[in-house]
């Protein structure tokens, strides 16, 4: 069935709702700082990007974070960082899969998405999140504490490189694995859904 724009809007909206729900189910990863939390909320975004289009996937991230902002559980900086990091994963993956509509293309897109996400993670943490958190607590002591856990961490740059980049890469790999597992069974329903008479 032809995908109308309205259908794109409603599917993106509902996927954003799932994404927001999943964002509340976040759990901290063992061995990482507590504000780095993993959740499956980027999954609807990547499925939207694969199924409908890269831009719609980014829209899911935008709406998810706007909704999350209303709940004011975290500071706004966390949501901005989450959106930028999520978009940097979804957009390249979606574009590559659109160009190369095969299983190989999907895998390639997800790998490149993971790499760009790790890069974006370094940049957003260096320029948005960590400066923001340093308004709340002394940065030097965070580095001092991290230094005891991981002796390679000496300053802000090494903190992002050794503390946050592995986290983002791990997150990207997990996301990619789940996407590869569930996208195939979902895509026929997404594309040729039986409309109720």
């Amino acid at each position: 069935m032809e995908k109308s724009k309205i259908r794109k809007i409603t599917i993106t909206a509902v996927l954003s709702a799932i994404s927001a729900v999943l964002m509340f189910l976040e759990t901290p990863l063992p061995g990482f700082p507590p504000f780095l939390q993993i959740d499956a909320s980027d999954l609807p975004a990547i499925i939207c990007a694969f199924g409908i289009g890269p831009i719609w996937g980014v829209a899911v991230g935008l709406i998810k974070n706007s909704v999350h902002m209303l709940a004011t559980k975290t500071m706004v900086a966390g949501e901005i960082a989450n959106f930028l990091i999520g978009a940097s994963f979804v957009l390249p993956a979606g574009i590559i899969y659109k160009k190369n509509h095969t299983k190989k293309g999907a895998l390639l897109g997800l790998v490149i998405g993971t790499v760009t996400m790790a890069l974006a993670g370094v940049l957003t943490n260096l320029y948005i999140t960590l400066p923001f958190y340093s308004k709340m607590m002394p940065m030097d002591t965070i580095i001092e504490i991290s230094n005891k856990v991981n002796p390679y961490i000496k300053d802000v740059m090494t903190l992002t490189l050794y503390g946050i980049t592995p986290f983002n890469i791990l997150k990207g790999i997990l996301l990619s694995a789940i996407t590869m597992l569930i996208y195939k069974p979902l895509s026929p329903i997404l594309h040729y859904s039986k409309r109720p008479c």
Binding site: R7, T10, I11, A13, L15
Partner: peptide, 23 residues
């Protein structure tokens, strides 16, 4: 998470379809 996510997505797609038709 997979046995949770797949049914969740499918029911969400169904809702999105119904909403699209209504709109």
């Amino acid at each position: 998470l997979i046995p949770l996510l797949v049914p969740l997505f499918i029911s969400a797609f169904r809702r999105a379809d119904e909403l699209a038709i209504a709109m």
